[in-house]
């Protein structure tokens, strides 16, 4: 696995990883892991599995609130911008039209509402997911590359209160996990 020869760095367990046969087995494993009292665990699959959120007891994604907030900022901000630029800062008479006519400002208000909502959806999703994160102890597994192909994995993090490398390993084996392995992360000594 990892090289333990380095001097200034020690390693400690970060998570226990187990592989399961397919989507159905992974959902059952998630239910059992949750039932056993584990909180900080995650399932890894090449595609989102229908019903996994319920099996893991996941709360709904809060992303909608982020997008809603940014949509509000985009809408009011762009309308205020057009009003201030066209009617306050430098009013110019064009075709005898009113300086502030909200009808003419609707298209750009709409477009900027959409633009900021899209930024909120994409970058809000990155923030909630903690991405980009190019390095993660889970990538130390040789088998884990299959998670983007045909592999179905369940990982229990060391931060979980019930976590114990040996007990968690035997638990995951008892619920049908294969190739159960403990993955370490590096800790820099002082």
């Amino acid at each position: 696995m990892s090289d333990q020869a380095r001097t200034s760095v020690t390693e400690r367990p970060a998570l226990v990883l187990a592989q399961f046969a397919g989507p159905k087995e992974l959902i059952m494993a998630a239910k059992k892991t949750r039932g056993a009292g584990y909180k900080k665990f995650d399932c890894h699959s090449p595609f989102p599995i229908h019903g996994m959120d319920q099996a893991m007891g996941e709360k709904q994604s809060p992303l909608g609130w982020i997008v809603g907030g940014l949509a509000l900022i985009g809408g009011t901000g762009s309308l205020l911008m057009q009003w201030w630029m066209s009617a306050i800062d430098y009013p110019v008479i064009i075709s005898g039209k009113a300086f502030f006519s909200f009808q003419a400002f609707v298209p750009i208000t709409f477009e900027l509402t959409v633009l900021l909502s899209a930024f909120g959806a994409v970058f809000g999703m990155f923030a909630l997911n903690g991405l980009p994160r190019l390095h993660h102890p889970i990538f130390n597994s040789d088998r884990f590359a299959a998670a983007s192909n045909n592999g179905f994995f369940l990982s229990v993090e060391a931060a979980d209160a019930k976590f114990d490398p040996l007990q968690t390993t035997s638990f995951l084996e008892s619920i049908g996990g294969e190739h159960v392995e403990t993955l370490n992360e590096e800790v820099h000594d002082d």
Binding site: S45, E58, S61, F153
Partner: peptide, 12 residues
């Protein structure tokens, strides 16, 4: 971006 197919991620 370090995508690891986690269900926490798939949800969002």
């Amino acid at each position: 971006l370090g995508w690891r197919g986690a269900n926490h991620h798939w949800k969002n």
